[in-house]
Amino acid sequence: MSSASYAIPAPPDSAAPAARGRSKPFRVLPGFGLTLGYTLVYLSLIVLIPLGGVFLKASGLGWESYWNVISAPRMVASYKLSFGASLLAAGINTVFGFLLAWALVRYDFFGKRVVDALVDLPFALPTAVAGIALATVYSPKGWIGSALEPLGIKVAYTPLGVLVALVFIGLPFVVRTVQPILEDLETELEEAAASLGAQRWTTFRLVIFPLLLPAILTGFALSFARAVGEYGSVIFVAGNIPMVSEITPLMIITKLEQFDYRGATAIATVMLIASFILLFAINGLQAWSARRIGRAV
């Protein structure tokens, strides 16, 4: 087929789409002022003022002692564990949560509804219950723990235990963010790719995955945020050994128990800033990938 020589008149609709002009905002829905005002007041009361209070309290410490508190070796070890394990857990949840969502959307199997409901369990379960359950199962005398012990793998009371707990509580996020997007994905896209000669894996890599990426990143961010803030389920299974399996939220509690409120808020500011930066980065990435599909630049 040498198509260069064909000259078929263009249908008239090939004219460029008319430039969208920006008109003055005209709102049909009333109540903009009221709802925005309420939103701002509410956000201030519930979020900004308490967070501001944290910084205010911490600032009473003075730079030098602030630095001393937050850079103590035991603290640094807890940051590494908290953020490291959270990132790792969010990563694991992204991979397996995606697989779960895929299986739930794409296939029909016996007990599908039960599996679907089980995914939400980590949401619903009180974290302490989850912690006790995990500690029981993974302790050296528990079902799984006793099976892993001969292999030299200790889960409970180690950083690995922390990771297991964070994976457990973060599971629903990726599944629930990817699932609806995957359901809405037209099968026609895959059929089109197949008719153009693409293998299954190529279709997944070039067509399906890019369209799901924003949802996957959102799930990752949510899972990560939840893991950083998690306390209840972790402390039961972590064993809380200084320098080894102490998470940062636990350090705040420890300070509070010693009536060191300033120290506690100092650590809190570190968590706040680090979480904020990480979420900001992930959201930026997510917005970038969302822009690539659909609303083009």
């Binding site: 037209e186 026609e188 896209l189 059929e191 089109a192 790719a193 008719s195 890019p210 369209l211 599909i293």
Partner: peptide, 12 residues
């Protein structure tokens, strides 16, 4: 070659 009613273009 297959052409779909709703185009099925890859929007990304």
């Amino acid at each position: 070659g297959f052409v779909f009613q709703h185009y099925a273009l890859f929007r990304h």
